[in-house]
Amino acid sequence: MIEMKNIKVRYSGGIAALNDVNLRIDDGEFVFIVGNSGAGKSTLMKLMLREIIPNEGRVFVNGYNLSKLKGKKIAHFRRTIGVVFQDFRLIPDLTVYDNIAFVLRVTNRSKKYIRQRVPYLLSLVNLADRAKAYPHQLSGGEQQRVALARALANDPPLLIADEPTGNIDPELSYEIVDMLKTINDQGTTVVMVTHQHDLVKYFGGRIINLKRGQISFDELIGGSDEVE
């Protein structure tokens, strides 16, 4: 669950990135966050990941009060979230398998668990046969699927996807969002930031629109895939 109360974020120079934002995302929701560049989408993401803390207001994610987190606790908090980035952020000199196993090692999982978990995650994103490949040998869509498998490694209750389809072919974008939907169906909360309105229109769901640092629209809309 994500809860933001009276959030104000100002960057140096006094520019307000977010101004009086109130937001609540319940467990099991699927939320699109849309808005023009500069509207505050990235700042919102950074708040959820505890990359920054707000100048005013409070942020609660998965039961953690993010303004009060320190040191090791930040690391532990981040293990409860899966993150997917626009630029994939895979480690280039690790294989697909190791890129995912790596996250599990970070969280102190046993070797036995890792040996079982990684192939399962790879099959989940239909990449079981690419385990030994390196990121540069994969297409953009495949790399993002590896990133997705990595984000799911710790079975997080919350998945945050920051423009996950920004760097891949449009037709493959649907495949990625479909996967996110499937993950959501199994109970994981999904927050996806995007500026691809066609995707939002197609899938529908809860849409939060940011405009000049404020929420201008927050409603459920029906997707065209349900109509068809």
């Binding site: 040191g71 293990r79 993150v83 895979l90 480690i91 996250v103 969280t107």
Partner: peptide, 16 residues
């Protein structure tokens, strides 16, 4: 630094 950055996002402690 990229590698370090990724580690931070997946919840690696500084010691790790």
């Amino acid at each position: 630094r990229k590698e370090i950055n990724i580690m931070k996002y997946v919840g690696a402690t500084n010691t790790f």
